[in-house]
Design a protein around this nucleic acid. Structure first.
Length: 719
DNA sequence: GACAGTCCTGTTTTT
DNA sequence: CAGGACTGTC
């Protein structure tokens, strides 16, 4: 292959990034600037020009999808398979390391990976063990704390924490760790922390991987958390071989530990590192880009980068002020129809929203309009109850100490063993510090159970052991099939009356299919097939049943839209409290993240961008009167065409509410009316009561929340 | 032990 | 409104 083709078709900045001499490189790549392209060509360049073997290259991505795409594109470009190259997510790569070196990592050879759901169950159990009240110590919060600590690279602190709350959380963390060890399970964060520690504690192993991986590339660097960054630095050592690509303006995962700071730190950590910028955008019209730039410019402390394009100005951005959320959906469908009538493809259209709950209205409207669509996210295949149950049987077969699976499986299908038996088992397991399986075995042996329970429990244990024997020597798909049948799951669902039984059976069949298609991806036989399959189902829960082919309109949250592009984009629900979300609007740094999310959303659009908000929205069952999102006001008015004409965009975006019943009462204000308060700022009248000097109104303020104010004292000004 | 009815609380999501 | 957790009855 001719080396020059590696650089043709690239712009100046991209060429420079691809061909820069090996060394530490930081590429700041704006949205739509050809980031993936640069990474792919860079790998090809390292192999073809610099003479690195694929075997000596490591590429880390954030999602499995990105990893798969990168591998595919590199192989297409080079025209040869690059099996020896490691391409994967931080978690996938760490998992692989731990499977290979389970002994050094102090894990059992059959260790299992827990997903977030399993983890939460385990946390619940731990809280129960510690006899802590779940209302005082919400399991979700404890889980959050544990993951936060692990993401920061911290083990349970033995040292007394000053803060009693933290001290208690540390105790929970410690107990949780013990439970993990006991059951041979590792959570997502543990994969990273454990492999990091593996390298720290075994210098010869680290040396081995350092020798092997001569070049390390990292995608979406702005999404890395502390432990991931530490992991990278440890592996890289002092060798100047990190090529990282990121965009601080697209950091939208701070809420789960990602540190934009890493991007900024990189330059301090590696002062010699080359800093390159990709600022030419190939995706959007200049109007869309200008608008997105204007919004993101409101964030302070950016690394600085302004996207530009040679493309045309394009159409104006269109803004629709819907009367309510139903009208908003109606409007989107109307415009969507016009678009499709022009012969455009549905798959080139995305409807983006802030929260998953918003998808429903659009789904209903699309069904009614008979427009095919696809919703991203939501319940993923491997997260469905019936799939998790079948997998739990398999996990229990592989690892009898996996308590999470034991608990999941013992009552499905119902076999007369319920809460009471489980309580006995749990107590015993806790006392003896052993797994539920071992507890069951010892209790049976010591005749510590009522006769009936004893019989049922024995049957259950024998069932699992029989299954273990029966799948010996079977291939993966047969083993899965056999497990589904022998467990009684198939029969149980066939008889279920809730109407979902048939779906569930079909999903179980699909699971057998997935097992049939499972291909082991590692080198040689690093570990048994079944274990690889089990781990993959946890690590890549969403990758199944993509079903791309059909031409459908795409519905997704703004978060999952990152990395994608569409000729036509609708961003809906641009309202204070929804986007930016109310949970984020008090904290400046989280508000900035919301703004980046808005920037990400806008820059998904290639040709057309529609923005909309509703003046009234039904939320949690009651009517709300949100203010238009502040992000709308950050867009220069001249770029926007308002569909329902009203005053200037820089002036209030909201005024008349003709479709809302006007309830003028003694307070002198009507519901939904815009008001101004000297200290709280802009707000909307939500409710009113009383009369004369005791008349009060409830006002929802843009920033100060909602308050009841006495009309006679509050200097409320109608606007 | 299983199931039905009531209470309560509402981000974003990949691994 | 709606899904999940929890409580009380058969």
């Amino acid at each position: 292959m001719d080396v020059s083709t590696l650089l043709t078709g690239l712009n100046e900045a991209q060429r420079e990034a691809v061909s820069v001499p090996p060394g530490n490189v930081l590429v700041l790549a704006g949205a739509g600037s050809g980031k993936t392209r640069v990474l792919v060509h860079r790998v090809a360049w390292l192999i073809q020009v610099c003479g690195f073997s694929p075997w000596s290259i490591l590429a880390v991505t954030f999602t499995n999808k990105a990893a798969g795409e990168m591998r595919g594109r590199i192989e297409t470009l080079l025209g040869l398979p690059i099996g020896g190259m490691w391409v994967g997510t931080f978690h996938g790569l760490s998992h692989r390391l731990l499977r290979s070196h389970w002994k050094e990592a102090a894990l059992p050879d059959h260790f299992q990976v827990m997903d977030a759901d399993d983890q939460l169950r385990l946390v619940r159990r731990v809280l129960k063990h510690l006899d802590l009240d779940e209302t005082r110590w919400p399991p979700k919060q404890a889980q959050w704390f544990i993951n936060g600590e692990k993401d920061a690279g911290r083990r349970p602190q033995q040292a007394e924490d000053r803060d009693p709350t933290r001290r208690q959380l540390q105790r929970i963390y410690q107990e949780y760790e013990d439970a993990c060890r006991q059951t041979g399970c590792v959570d997502f964060a543990e994969l990273l922390l454990r492999s990091y520690e593996l390298w720290r504690q075994h210098p010869q192993l680290l040396e081995h991987y350092r020798t092997r991986f001569q070049q390390i590339l990292v995608d979406e660097f702005q999404d890395t958390n502390s432990i991931q960054y530490a992991w990278l630095r440890l592996l890289a050592g002092e060798r100047d071989n990190l090529f990282v690509v990121g965009d601080d303006d697209q950091s939208i995962y701070g809420w789960r530990g990602a540190q934009v700071q890493n991007l900024r730190d990189f330059r301090h950590q590696y002062p010699q590192a080359q800093l390159l910028r990709l600022e030419q955008n190939y995706r959007s019209t200049s109007r869309i880009l200008k608008a997105a730039n204007a919004v993101i410019a409101c964030n302070p402390g950016r690394l600085g980068k302004t996207l530009w394009t040679q493309g045309g100005e394009g159409e104006p951005i269109r803004l629709y002020a819907a009367f309510n959320e139903v009208d908003e959906a109606r409007f989107v469908i109307e415009r969507l129809r016009q678009h499709l009538a022009q012969g455009e493809k549905g798959s080139g259209v995305a409807i983006l929203y802030r929260t998953t709950a918003q998808s429903r209205l659009f789904e209903e409207a699309l069904i009614q309009a008979q427009i095919p669509y696809r919703v991203y996210g939501g319940m993923r295949f491997f997260e469905r109850a019936e799939i998790k149950e079948a997998m739990a049987y398999l996990r229990l077969i592989v690892n009898a100490d996996d308590d999470a699976s034991f608990e999941r499986v013992i009552a499905t299908p119902p076999r007369g063993l319920g809460v009471k038996t489980m309580d006995t088992l749990r107590d015993h397991a806790r006392l003896k510090r052993c797994s539920l399986w071992t507890a069951a075995v010892t209790l049976l042996r010591d005749l510590g159970l009522p006769a009936r329970t004893s019989l049922l429990l024995t049957r259950f244990l024998e069932l699992i052991e029989r299954m273990r024997r029966d799948i010996q020597g079977l291939d993966l798909a047969e083993a899965v099939e056999k497990t589904i049948a022998a467990s009684g799951l198939a029969e149980y669902y066939a008889q279920s009356k809730d109407g979902k039984g048939q779906d569930r059976i079909e999903n179980l069949d699909e699971l057998v299919n997935a097992a049939r298609q499972y291909v082991y991806e590692g080198e040689e036989d690093e570990y048994p097939l079944l274990q690889g399959f089990l781990a993959q189902s946890v690590l890549e829960a969403g990758e199944m049943q993509e079903g791309e082919a059909a031409d459908r309109v795409q519905l997704m949250t703004l978060h999952s839209a990152k990395g994608l592009e569409f000729p036509l984009v609708f961003i809906v629900g641009l309202e204070e409290g929804l986007f930016p979300h109310s949970m984020s609007s008090m904290d400046p740094s989280r508000l900035e993240e919301e703004r980046r999310l808005c920037y990400v959303g806008m820059t998904r659009a290639m040709h057309r961008l529609y923005l909309s908000y509703a003046e009234t929205r039904r939320l949690h069952g009651s009517e709300t009167y949100p203010l238009p999102s502040r992000f709308l006001r950050e867009i220069p008015p001249e770029l926007v065409e308002e569909i329902r004409p009203r005053a200037q965009i820089s002036r209030p975006l909201y005024q008349a509410r003709p479709y809302h019943p006007v309830v003028e009462d003694q307070t002198g204000f009507r519901l939904g009316q815009q008001v101004l308060h000297p200290t709280f700022g802009e707000g909307v009248i939500l409710d009113a009561e009383g009369q004369g000097s005791s008349a009060r109104v409830q006002v929802k303020f843009a920033t100060a929340g909602s308050k009841w104010l006495v009309v006679a004292y509050a200097k409320l000004q109608a606007r």
